[in-house]
């Protein structure tokens, strides 16, 4: 059992939990993930690590309430416990010391992006970020990014905050204005990451993306999370979750994400 030390509501669909997990907190690095199981009969839910505190032995997760299991997680309060919490899983993000990096986050993708950009900043890299969301409410972690990012750009679908449009609109504008980026890190919905790559690939700006496919164990055992990267099959759980965006077959990823669409619906109805 793992204690929920604190809990915060970030918006109507997204929450943050700080969970006591000494093994994970001692070892985890930006880019890695954990698997949480809410209760005895729960599903194994993979979530990327949003933050950690090695002294307090805690790990922060940020999750979107999208289905049966995340709804169950959201019912838990601070001071209560989750049944299982295992990690750190996956490879640390491949962060390079370079001049200027821009992070591009879509929705809850801000959460895994945050520790990566902060680490780059600590390494002496100049970092900017574009945060996207449906509306102002869904733009998360803006204050946290502002602490170390040189520029924080916002894009919302409805224009309620920042530029009206997609994160790629902002990225394209910055590039058109002559901004030079050595690397881009894009984390968010598959379609967003694909579109970011569509902008950066013709300009040959190295772009890393973080994948979160369907998986069971997270240790390489089930192979459910396989993705095609550069024509080769990789397991996102042990080879990733971060990959060179130029090489990822996003269309296949999007199809595979839909494997249990009908069942997710059933489960939600029954739950």
């Amino acid at each position: 059992m793992y204690k929920i030390v604190s809990k915060e509501t970030l918006n109507s669909a997204v929450e943050l939990m700080e969970i006591e997990a000494p093994f994970v907190a001692a070892k985890c690095e930006a880019g890695q993930f954990i698997i949480v199981r809410v209760d005895e009969d729960g599903e194994r839910i993979p979530l990327t690590i949003a933050d950690y505190d090695r002294e307090k032995n805690t790990v922060t997760i940020i999750y979107q309430i999208v289905g049966y299991s995340t709804e169950k997680l959201a019912k838990k309060k601070a001071g209560e416990y989750v049944e299982d919490f295992v990690g750190p899983l996956g490879q640390p993000a491949p962060l390079h010391k370079c001049g200027h990096v821009i992070g591009v986050a879509g929705g809850v993708g801000s959460a895994p992006l945050y520790p990566q950009l902060r680490k780059l900043h600590d390494m002496g890299v100049k970092v900017d970020v574009i945060i996207g969301g449906r509306s102002q409410e869904f733009v998360i972690l803006k204050d946290k990014f502002e602490k170390f990012c040189d520029n924080v750009y916002i894009a919302t679908d409805d224009g309620s905050m920042g530029t009206k449009g997609f994160v790629t609109t902002v990225l394209q504008e910055l590039i058109d204005k002559g901004e030079k980026f050595d690397e881009v890190i894009a984390i968010g919905p598959l379609i967003m990451m694909k579109n970011v790559v569509n902008v950066t690939k013709p300009l040959d700006i190295p772009t890393f993306v973080s994948l979160n496919p369907i998986m069971i164990d997270g240790t390489g055992m089930c192979g459910g999370c396989r993705v095609t990267v550069g024509g080769e099959t990789k397991f996102a759980c042990v080879d990733g979750p971060d990959f060179d965006g130029f090489l990822v077959d996003f269309d296949e990823c999007m199809k595979r994400q839909g494997m249990f669409k009908e069942e997710e619906h059933t489960c939600k109805l029954e739950g």
């Binding site: 009969d41 194994r44 049966y68 069971i216 069942e263 489960c267 029954e270």
Partner: peptide, 12 residues
Amino acid sequence: MKAYKFPEAPTP
């Protein structure tokens, strides 16, 4: 994950 009991068990 007891998927044979789905949807009683949440893993499909």
